[in-house]
Amino acid sequence: MSTVKIKKGDTVKVIAGADKDKEGKVIAVNHKNNTVIVEGVNMITKHTKPSMANQNGGIIHQEAPIDLSNVMYSLKGKATRVGFKMDGDKKVRYAKATGEVID
């Protein structure tokens, strides 16, 4: 099993699908299903019944998961692949396009 190179809080660009070329921040990562939820991407309408949390119910617009293979890390508006390298004795992620350390 390969390491997931996208983390919560990263800015990503959608490279395939209906929302191609949209950018957004990662809200959640599901390692088991290899999916991510990106802010403002892959929006769906959900019909909800009234509950204690939502007194009125109705139609809610929310993000749906998108496959990890359909997103790419975005650095300064440009999509780039992510790699790992050792920085001293610490393993860090870096952008392969520029060689810049991400975190």
Rank of each mutant, 00 (worst) to 15 (best):
G24W: 08
T35F: 08
P50K: 11
V36Y: 09
N34C: 05
L68M: 13
T3K: 02
Y94I: 05
T98V: 01
A64C: 08
T98N: 01
K32G: 04
D19W: 06
V71G: 13
H47S: 12
D67W: 14
T48A: 12
V4I: 03
S2D: 00
L68N: 15
D87V: 02
G88R: 08
M1E: 03
N54C: 14
T45M: 14
G77Q: 06
T80F: 10
I15P: 09
E39L: 13
N33W: 10
N54I: 12
T45R: 14
V36C: 12
S2M: 00
I15D: 11
R81E: 13
N30I: 05
E39T: 13
Q62H: 05
K7R: 00
A18M: 14
K7V: 01
S74M: 04
T98Q: 03
S2I: 02
P50D: 13
A64K: 11
M86E: 11
A28I: 13
D103I: 09
K49Y: 09
G88V: 09
E39W: 13
P50W: 13
K76T: 02
N34A: 06
M86F: 09
N34S: 08
Q62N: 07
V92I: 02
E39F: 15
I27K: 12
K90W: 05
K46Q: 06
N34I: 10
V92N: 04
T35L: 07
I102F: 00
I6W: 00
D19G: 03
V12F: 07
G77C: 04
D19P: 01
V82H: 01
K46N: 05
Y94H: 08
E23I: 01
D10S: 01
